[in-house]
Design a protein around this nucleic acid. Sequence first.
DNA 1: GAAATTAGTTCGTACTATGAACAATTGTCA
DNA 2: TGACAATTGTTCATAGTACGAACTAATTTC
Lengths: 163, 163
Amino acid sequence: MVTTKEPALRFTEALVRLAHLVQQVFGEVSREHDLTPQQAQLLCLLIDGPVGMTELTRALHLEKSSLTGLVDRAEKRGLVVRTRDSRDRRACRIELSQDGARIAVLAHEGVTRRLDALTEELPEQHRALLTSAIGDLLAEHTSRTGRDWLPSGHVTDAAPVTR
Amino acid sequence: MVTTKEPALRFTEALVRLAHLVQQVFGEVSREHDLTPQQAQLLCLLIDGPVGMTELTRALHLEKSSLTGLVDRAEKRGLVVRTRDSRDRRACRIELSQDGARIAVLAHEGVTRRLDALTEELPEQHRALLTSAIGDLLAEHTSRTGRDWLPSGHVTDAAPVTR
DNA sequence: GAAATTAGTTCGTACTATGAACAATTGTCA
DNA sequence: TGACAATTGTTCATAGTACGAACTAATTTC
């Protein structure tokens, strides 16, 4: 018998639904800019500068063959450019095109705005708490599964809620 | 210039990464049972009993044609059965097969176990807080966008953190 | 400098997601 | 009652996602 009585279940249920919501927001924003969610995610990852394919596979948790396809399509749409790496002639760096950069920023802002809007009713304190609690959760997962590539100094440097 | 200095950005960054993590967990568990994440999600939604197609499109945020395909493939795999609705001869109800029910429970448990594991280090208090804060967030979104189909009494009846 | 490793691509397969057009059924209301 | 509208779900064509196996080219290792 599977019912939803234990707090444990409640908790994961909350997480799953939250994830679903974030995905939804991402999807809406992507569509507004005529992107797929995956393309939008790619663009957002490139905002801080060019990134190599291997790094991207780690960041997106994709197999390299999947990423090749994603980048191919993004390139065909003129959102992104493949640049040959000068040091390692096997490697390449993926870079936003001018168009891509514009859209990337818009999409990023769109997601941020919508998600922020959802919490504007929450007291700032809870918001901060939520952030660092999630930070803890992510840190826990990272320490458990080993490395998890990060584009730059984000989330994880928020002070953990524990200790 | 897009940097990550404002707490606002930190917060959405946390949400997005959390969503990503949940998706990942879902993906791992699904794979263990030789399912796609979408199939696993479908099965989990059916645990509490048969559901009609229209209801499912709302729960999964899919177009009806997309759902037809998803159910088709799940049915072909013997995970699910289409039952004709006796009252409305246009409609049908999707029901777990015996095999499907077994796998659905396993997958559900798998996700629950893994997500719970991530928070076992957190003090129970924070965990509860996280849950209800997320509950608030979801409620905010629901009230904003109107209806959001729920399979049964979940999350939302957790006491809101605000007020 | 041969062998192992690493970076990316190609290819075949299965799955995901959508919109438009459609058939069947049910509901409305004049 | 009987035409018309709305609802339920399917089919089809199209584009995109994701994977693993096999592959090429460049780099490291020994």
